[in-house]
C-alpha cells in the first residue's frame, strides 16, 4: 500500500494564513461553528455566524435558479477585503484577503 503523505491540518492552515495578503483563515463545521481559526476569537465568531448565513442563502439562491446546480465557491469583494469561501457538505473554509497588500 502506498503511503500518502498527508499534511497536518494546522500546518496547512498556518501556511495558508502566512501567504502574502492573507489576514486569516477560519474553518466552520456544518453547524456554523468555528473549529479552526487563525484570527482572534471575537472576530472569528462574527465571521462564523455571518458567513454561515451568507453561504446558506447563496446555496439556496443557486439551487433555486437551477435545482441541479450547486454552489462550489464564493468570492466576496469588499472595500477592505476579499473573502474567499470554499463550502463543502461538512465544512466551510473562509479566507480573508487584504488585496491592497498585493
Amino acid at each position: 500500500m502506498a503511503i500518502t503523505q498527508q499534511s497536518d491540518v494546522d500546518e496547512t492552515l498556518k501556511r495558508l494564513a502566512g501567504r502574502k495578503g492573507v489576514e486569516g483563515v477560519v474553518i466552520l463545521n456544518s453547524d456554523g461553528l468555528a473549529i479552526r481559526s487563525t484570527i482572534e476569537a471575537e472576530l472569528t465568531k462574527k465571521y462564523a455566524s455571518h458567513v454561515h448565513q451568507l453561504v446558506s442563502h447563496s446555496k439556496d439562491a443557486i439551487s433555486g435558479i437551477d435545482s441541479e446546480n450547486e454552489l462550489t465557491f464564493l468570492r466576496v469583494r469588499t472595500k477592505k477585503h476579499e473573502l474567499m469561501i470554499a463550502p463543502d457538505k461538512e465544512y466551510l473554509m473562509i479566507v480573508v484577503q487584504n488585496f491592497h497588500e498585493n
Binding site: 498527508q6 499534511s7 497536518d8 491540518v9 496547512t12 492552515l13 501556511r15 495558508l16 501567504r19 495578503g21 492573507v22 474553518i27 473549529i35 479552526r36 465557491f73 468570492r75 474567499m84 470554499a86 463543502d88 461538512e90 465544512y91 473554509m93 479566507v95 484577503q97
Partner: peptide, 20 residues
C-alpha cells in the same frame, strides 16, 4: 472526523492557493 477535516482542508486550501 479528523481525517474528514484534513481531506477538506487539503482540497479547499489548494483552490484558495490558486485563487491567491
Amino acid at each position: 472526523q479528523n481525517e474528514d477535516t484534513r481531506d477538506f482542508v487539503d482540497s479547499s486550501s489548494k483552490i484558495v492557493e490558486r485563487a491567491l
